[in-house]
């Protein structure tokens, strides 16, 4: 039991379950799923489907934060990606896949490139991550508005809707995209030494350099990956609504993504990162939003409630707080922790 409580994933998972159970309380059919027109439907699927962009962006954000950085530009990159994608297919019609592939390729390429721009500023020029990405946060949205001419551009090209609205094996296609990117990220970071290098650079960049790690390239890579993830997320969002909105697409996404990462247990101080935790964090945020709409709380309270839940999760994760409030193994717990330090300080 103790091992379970100590696991980093315990509290986020618990909170996620709680939120889902609250939903069940208000809506007894919440957990039910049915196949309609060959598509699996239900609230849970809905949460996964709508949460896919946030999950994607949070995965990229996790790696950036692991290097002691932060990427504030993801929201703007989402807008850029959507704008590029939508404008590429704006004049297309019919069902040919050419324009679709062109749109995907072009927008992902550009998003990865602008992520790399962040990376260059941070790793080569030495600009602080928060400043470097703030620049793109402003510039990116500006570019998106320029591309769309400040208007909402509607797409009439059918294949484009598949990215965010299509179904595969009875499941929304966006879930597959998120799962695929998650899998790639996990494989790359845990089955190769990339994860070790990222954690090393985040924990002590100077020492990492002296150990022969090319810290600059590692940083460049994580920002590029974050840009890529934001690009994919942007395509999904734009495809969902079959339009591009330079002004509002991806607004505040960077904050949700940072929250998801923090809820997942990755420290903003860099070092260790937890991709699975991040995904759960993103799901918590998404299910909160869904819950607020579905149980009839006025939509205006959305942000306040969200903030409260995030606060609760963060507090629950702090051993200090748990000890003070619940008296969890009050004496023993305290002794144990000190003991651990002490035994190793000998």
């Amino acid at each position: 039991m103790k091992a379970i409580i100590k696991s980093r994933l315990f509290w986020p998972i618990l909170v996620l379950m709680l939120i889902l159970l609250i939903n069940l309380f208000f809506d007894s059919s919440f957990f039910s799923m049915e196949i309609r027109n060959g598509r699996l439907t239900g609230s849970l699927i809905d949460i996964l489907n709508r949460g896919a962009p946030l999950i994607l962006i949070s995965i990229g954000m996790t790696l950036v934060i692991a290097t002691k950085g932060i990427d504030l530009s993801v929201g703007s990159v989402i807008a850029m990606s959507g704008a590029i994608g939508a404008m590429t297919v704006a004049s297309a019609d019919g069902t040919g896949l050419g324009p679709l592939l062109m749109a995907i390729g072009l927008s992902l390429l550009i998003c990865t490139f602008v992520g790399g721009w962040n990376g260059l500023l941070v790793s080569r020029v030495g600009v602080q991550p928060i400043v470097a990405t703030l620049i793109l946060m402003v510039a990116g949205r500006g570019v998106a508005q320029l591309i769309t001419g400040g208007q909402i551009t509607t797409v009439y090209y059918d294949p484009y809707s598949f990215i965010g609205g299509g179904y595969l094996l009875a499941l929304p296609f966006s879930i597959f995209i998120a799962a695929f990117v998650f899998l790639i990220a996990v494989l790359l970071t845990r089955k190769t030494a990339l994860g070790l290098f990222i954690e090393s650079v985040g924990s002590n960049p100077d020492a990492s350099r002296l150990a022969g790690i090319n810290s600059k390239n590692i940083m460049l890579m994580v920002y590029m990956f974050s840009g890529f993830c934001a690009g994919v997320g942007g395509l999904i969002l734009s495809s969902n609504v079959m339009s591009a909105d330079g002004n509002n697409a991806g607004l505040w996404f960077e904050l949700d993504a940072i929250l998801a990462v923090v809820i997942g247990g990755t420290s903003l101080m860099g070092g260790r990162f937890y991709l699975t935790g991040t995904v759960i964090g993103a799901l918590i945020i998404q299910s909160l939003t869904t819950t607020i709409y579905s149980i009839g709380i006025p939509a205006e309270t959305n942000l306040v409630v969200k903030a409260l839940v995030v606060l609760i999760v963060c507090l629950l994760q702090s051993p200090e707080f748990r000890r003070k409030v619940f008296g969890f193994g009050k004496v023993k717990g305290a002794g144990e922790q000190k003991g651990k330090e002490g035994a190793t300080l000998l």
Binding site: K191, T192, A193, L194, L196, F197, E199, S200, G202, S203, N204, D206, A207, S208, L210, A211, G212, I213, N214, G270, G271, R272
Partner: peptide, 29 residues
């Protein structure tokens, strides 16, 4: 403290860091 240890990593990870960086990121021990 500043140029040696990677504080957040384990003893094992600290030990293999240099040899791993020789191998590169793809050939993970």
């Amino acid at each position: 403290k500043t140029e040696g240890i990677i504080p957040e990593l384990t003893v094992r990870e600290n030990m293999i860091l240099a040899i791993q960086s020789v191998y590169g990121w793809f050939r993970y021990l």
